[in-house]
Design a protein around this nucleic acid. Structure first.
Length: 558
RNA sequence: GUGCCUGUAGCUCAGCUGGAUAGAGUAUUGCCCUCCGAAGGCAAAGGUCUGGGGUUCGAAUCCCCACAGGCACGCCA
């Protein structure tokens, strides 16, 4: 369909320019032909409102202009029929060749169907999750992980050279606190609880009790012989390493694999911080006052300037982020996506300011803010409290409802609206549950293949397709849904909107189920059957690819 | 107090870079398997797009003002 669509755009563009020149109408500089998918089935394959937009500059009424355009449009090769509708829409029906063309293309491209070249191989980084290595991932991280991972997949499909990166927040006070918590658990494990009291804001999770056990295994009681201060760094370092491994496991079990694990601490170890500060000073965006180093964020509309290096010489978290941002650009990324929890939204202007201060392009950096998740069970909220230690872990959800449902549910909604995640719904194997609905469509096709095989019928070659036998409304609707996939990828990539793909998956499955229920494959005339098998194969390929983008499995049987 | 997000069918949400009769799922009601997976399909019904102004040929969509809910406003990370 794409080639015909492009041709149609060219024809329209040429005709409109011709009309403008002939009549000395002034074409707006921003003029570009845009086609859209009409909502209504009766409104053809493509529609445009261009006549309405040009009516004013041309001094005509929209319908009149539309008629003028139609008069000059060549028909037969690409367009079968053009109609003027409503206030001045033009609805185009393509010649039916596009159906065969699409089925052929989908079949040939197979697992590459849906890929577009919007990114042109440019480097883009998606940084997400980026939790402190102080404990296993909880549910909130899960949404960020799913959104980040799937956004990255979409960008990959859209032709970008994508890197997934996890920023390990391993510099700063919380590492010490983690060490102290582990240390205390260690003393507890060897029966000397009083010698190392649990820190006030320590990490209460049970995983630290387990980790303490590992310290006992490795060191026996030897760590208790030295003063607490002397062993603290051992506890901090080794605990962080173990916890990071837990996080990595949580993520890989969730189908999320990072290309780069970037340590905040490494920014300091590799001397990335000072050059970044110097760069800011040189550009006159940083200054010293009261013994501290400040960033002039007020120049960018902030209420007050922000501290980079404290009076005591210790850099703030913000400093790391400044150095990190520069480091990202030094690695030649053309675009940077940050996926953050919405509770960090206040921080967005600040990082954008730094971006400007360094002189980078404003639109090279985008922050995706992920709103909160409300966990429900049978419609009722699941009580959670950080203090009481009843935080729900990502692993618990995955164990209960599975990776597929968890991933799908997490990207089902727009990022900027809060998400209700109902555990019971996610487990249901009915149409109430969109994951199953989509997977079922795929499994159903596989089942039909098995049935065909039993009857000694294989999958025909694409050349055996008989377009004339594809004419039922449900067939046309299905092939249309299939043909939309590349556009959906392009749109989702442009808007960083993974939920679009989840919606599209449902739409595609719906078109298939409707087709399946109204048309038979087995027992029809040979050319009809062959054509339907080929149509179904295109549907199967597309379903599989959509699910792959979402990181959800496409089962052959359920 | 300031800033950000949200407000669309009973419920959960798409649609938001302006376009045709505002769409899904679910719940409700009725139909469809001697037939490839009924884990499905078809149909009915369901709306003051929170409210009020404005912009224009046209507004759920853009602007302003209210109202309601959520989240942030550290030399914490």
């Amino acid at each position: 369909m794409q080639s015909m669509t492009e041709e149609l755009k060219k024809q329209l563009d040429a005709v409109i320019r011709e009309i403008a020149t002939e009549n000395e109408y002034k074409l707006p500089e921003t003029f570009i032909v845009k086609l859209e998918r009409p909502r209504q089935a009766g409104h053809g394959d493509w529609a445009t409102n261009i006549a309405m937009q040009l009516a004013k500059p041309f001094g005509l009424n929209p319908r009149e202009l539309a008629e003028k355009i139609i008069e000059k449009m060549p028909t037969g090769k690409v367009v079968e029929k053009i109609e003027v509708a409503g206030p001045g829409f033009m609805n185009f029906t393509l010649v039916s060749d596009w159906i065969a063309e699409t089925i052929k293309m989908v079949t040939e491209k197979n697992e590459n169907y849906g890929r577009v070249n919007q990114g042109e191989g440019r480097k883009i980084q998606v940084e997400f999750v980026s939790a402190n290595p102080t404990g296993p991932l909880h549910m909130g991280h899960g949404r960020g992980a799913a959104v980040g991972d799937i956004t990255a997949s979409i960008l990959d499909y859209a032709g970008w050279n994508v890197e997934r990166e996890f920023y390990i927040n391993d510099a700063g006070l919380q590492m010490e606190l983690l060490g102290k918590s582990a240390q205390s658990r260690y003393f507890e494990a060897i029966g000397k609880t009083e010698e190392a009291p649990f820190p006030e804001d320590g990490y209460h999770g049970e995983y630290l009790i387990e980790i303490a056990g590992k310290f006992v295994e490795k060191y026996g009681t030897s760590l208790a012989d030295k003063p607490l201060e002397d062993t603290l760094s051992i506890f901090s370092k080794e605990t962080a390493t173990i916890v990071l491994e837990m996080i990595k496991k949580d993520l890989s079990d969730f189908g999320v694999n990072f290309d780069v694990w970037f340590s905040e601490k490494s920014l300091y170890d590799n001397n990335c911080v000072e050059p970044a500060m110097t760069a800011l000073k040189e550009r006159d965006y940083a200054y010293e006052q009261d013994g501290a180093l400040w960033f002039k964020s007020t120049l960018f509309g902030d209420d007050k300037d922000r501290v980079l290096i404290r009076q005591n010489g210790v850099p703030t978290y913000f400093t790391s982020d400044v150095a990190y941002l520069k480091n990202k650009y030094d690695r030649k990324f053309e675009k940077l996506i940050y996926v953050w929890g919405a509770d960090h939204h206040g921080y967005v202007p600040r990082i954008k300011s730094v971006n400007k201060a360094f002189g980078y392009k404003d639109d090279a950096l985008d922050v995706l803010l992920i709103q909160m998740v409300n966990l429900l069970r049978d419609g009722k909220p699941v009580q959670m409290s950080k203090r009481a230690g009843t935080i729900i872990m990502l692993r618990e959800i995955v164990d209960e409802v599975g990776v597929d449902a968890t991933r799908f549910f997490f990207v089902m909604r727009r990022c900027d609206s809060t998400l209700d995640f109902d555990l019971e719904l996610a487990k249901k194997a009915t149409s109430e549950n969109p994951v199953f609905y989509v997977q079922y469509a795929h499994a159903r096709i596989c089942s039909i293949y098995r049935e065909l095989e039993k009857n000694g019928i294989g999958i025909p070659d694409v050349t055996e397709l008989d377009v004339a036998s594809i004419s039922e409304a449900s067939e046309i609707a299905l092939i249309k849904a299939i043909s939309k996939f590349p556009e959906e990828i392009a749109k989702a990539a442009e808007e960083y909107a993974p939920h679009r793909i989840a919606y599209y998956a449902t739409e595609l499955a719906e078109a298939f189920h409707a087709f399946y229920n109204s048309q038979r494959i087995l027992g029809t005339e040979e050319n009809v059957m062959k054509s339907r098998i080929l149509l179904m194969q295109a549907a199967k390929i597309t379903l599989k690819n959509v699910l792959t983008v979402l990181g959800v499995s496409a089962p052959e049987k359920m």
